[in-house]
Design a protein around this nucleic acid. Sequence first.
DNA 1: ATTTGATTTAGAATAATTCTAAACTATATT
DNA 2: AATATAGTTTAGAATTATTCTAAATCAAAT
Lengths: 145, 145
Amino acid sequence: MKTLRQMDRGALSYALDHAGQRTTPQREMVFSILLDERNHPTADEVYTRTKSRMPTISMATVYNCLEALVTCGLVKQVNIEREPTRYCPNLSPHAHFHCRETGRVYDVPVPEGMMKDLVKVLPGNYSADSVELVFRGHLEKGKTK
Amino acid sequence: MKTLRQMDRGALSYALDHAGQRTTPQREMVFSILLDERNHPTADEVYTRTKSRMPTISMATVYNCLEALVTCGLVKQVNIEREPTRYCPNLSPHAHFHCRETGRVYDVPVPEGMMKDLVKVLPGNYSADSVELVFRGHLEKGKTK
DNA sequence: ATTTGATTTAGAATAATTCTAAACTATATT
DNA sequence: AATATAGTTTAGAATTATTCTAAATCAAAT
């Protein structure tokens, strides 16, 4: 895919505008890159991919764009151990699985309502607005995914 | 508490030995510091506290000791967002709650077997050896803890 | 047409962590 | 007990992801 679909473009402009931010070619491109290959790239990987289509973009701009996308809620940051932050445009509730062998991160869909149920383990005076569930391990041979 | 309790000392020596590592004054001190105040200190905080009782210790040694404790299974690393790694000597299954206001991290005990149940959301070819559950939010006024 | 404010950019700065190599310590071996 | 061996500690340098800075660019509003 070379460019943002109309639907995604609309969602992007709407979300950015809602957060008081402008829609720019760089932000569109970075968002497009994230949607294009949803393998939880790092900022550096996003930079490399973006640069191939928009050679003048800088690393700082990639960070700026990613931050803008996170701020306006279209992208989630995924931090695993001390590794570089990864970026994930999957907005539906899900967990993450981190393969120790390949280092890859996979989305794991969770049953409807599970994330909300988890919050119930918290004592009454704890109020959570985000729940993060990360598994670490390895993929059994045979299936790669 | 000024020094390691006999029980903890034994557990430490046993665990280190089991991992092919020696029991040293520095490792004992760092372990003692972690057990003493269980508020998920960063390496830097551990360094400061340790230095007050063992002024010649170096930062590198603190990192070495923490790594040794993690390797031999007595301490867990807790990574929240991009903040410095924190260290937690609580070995029973628990979740973490990260207060956005104070930055503090709290242990949240979870019901028996819950962590194991969570693994069931994974597809068959995913094999997890660790489960991490982190809540983020704030503490309601009134109770501080 | 001009002002204003946001965005992009390159490069410098920051900060947590890891690495390096020398000094030290403890254990094992003679 | 003396020596060799291997693990540990130490200070400081190196690394690296990320943030900061200030100038240049751009777009919207007056």
